[in-house]
Write a protein that binds this DNA or RNA. Structure first.
Lengths: 199, 199
DNA sequence: CGCATTCTCTACCAAGTGGTAAAGATCCTG
DNA sequence: CAGGATCTTTACCACTTGGTAGAGAATGCG
């Protein structure tokens, strides 16, 4: 039955879009269902509860993010080049899939349902990154600094890109690639000034 | 009856805190009322509808923000010093009243009720700032660039500070002044590189 | 075919939502 | 004290919400 994963994915797509724009509380299962031409009970069949749907959406997004970064980590870029490659990869993902930024911002809110799960999902990735960076520091290929703080700042910068895009759009400015590229440059500048020993 | 403005302000305080953390949709009038030890009908008496309450909250916050900036504009700082003074003043406001950042982020969301009203409230301030900057550009005291884009980027950076603080807190790091100061330094650096002709 | 699995549907419900109507309080003023 | 204005309350309502129960389709397999 090829329909199964198809319906499930269609629901996930719609839920991601709605959670990211209207928020979790601002989304009703009926809204999603009607938008897809089915009944909300179908959604509950696949995900049991609304919270379960959110969890599935969070898991998928965290998976996308993790996969994108694994891709770079499996590549041949090293040292500072690897940092730059990671940033570029994440920004590319954000541009390809803007709704992802909306969800990230939603779950970055205090008291947000999903926040804990997203964090749990990204924890291994963060820990891995931190260990790598600290290793590089230890051998002098990166300058010494608080690795975790650095990573979280980078994370919130990426999330902020989503906010900025929406702010611009609300002000009637259709965001161009330029504004995003600028943010990326700033983030790279921040990371370079924190990490690059050649600086 | 001195109670009137008092009760009203207490409701506004509680609503600001709740809208900023749980979001508009995630807040029920009952929640607010119970937290204040009164009935939700009291809230509705003062603000007629939930939406009216949001509007009042947005208006007050926009007023705080505007007043803070007027304060600087009435001061004696000029040229680049004025830009720096404005940034410092806004960051100080954000530190004094962190809940304000929560609301700003809430209304910076697409489809957010209140987004339009916040924008309408801040529009005059933004227009005034743009005109001033463009004037400075015209006489060569600032470098030429897209003033509105600059302002909106600065705005979203400030909003991003709120997100970052919450991300850090969620990760178990109690945000220190240091992280906020760093963001301020970055924003000033961005503005300087965009505007300062001495650069 | 018969049967079981997988999926989607209709029907319904308990709880919570924002909001209305109106009765009391509390206070100021003539 | 009487009466009006301001404020807070109780009682109630229409509606939406997430969720349950169970009946039908559709598909795969013996």
């Amino acid at each position: 039955m090829a329909d199964r994963s198809d319906t499930k994915n269609r629901i996930l797509d719609a839920a991601l879009a709605s959670f990211g724009t209207a928020g979790f509380d601002g989304t009703s299962l009926d809204d999603i269902a009607v938008g897809l031409g089915l009944r909300k009970q179908t959604i509950l069949y696949h995900f049991v509860t609304k919270r379960g749907l959110l969890n599935a959406v969070v898991d998928r997004c965290a998976g996308d993010l993790t996969r994108a970064m694994e891709e770079v980590l499996a590549g041949e870029a090293r040292d500072w080049d690897r940092v730059e490659a990671l940033v570029r990869r994440v920004f590319r993902l954000a541009l390809d899939q803007p709704v992802l930024l909306g969800l990230l911002r939603e779950v970055s809110r205090p008291n947000s349902p999903g926040a804990q799960r997203m964090r749990a999902n990204l924890d291994p990735l963060m820990a891995r990154a931190r260990i790598w960076i600290e290793g590089e520091m230890a051998v002098g290929r990166m300058r010494r600094t608080d690795a975790q703080l650095l990573l979280l700042s980078a994370y919130s910068t990426v999330v902020g890109v989503g906010t900025e895009i929406e702010v611009l759009r609300a002000a009637g400015i259709e965001p161009t690639l330029r504004t995003v590229v600028q943010r990326r440059r700033e983030l790279l500048g921040f990371l370079r000034s924190s990490l690059d020993p050649r600086d």
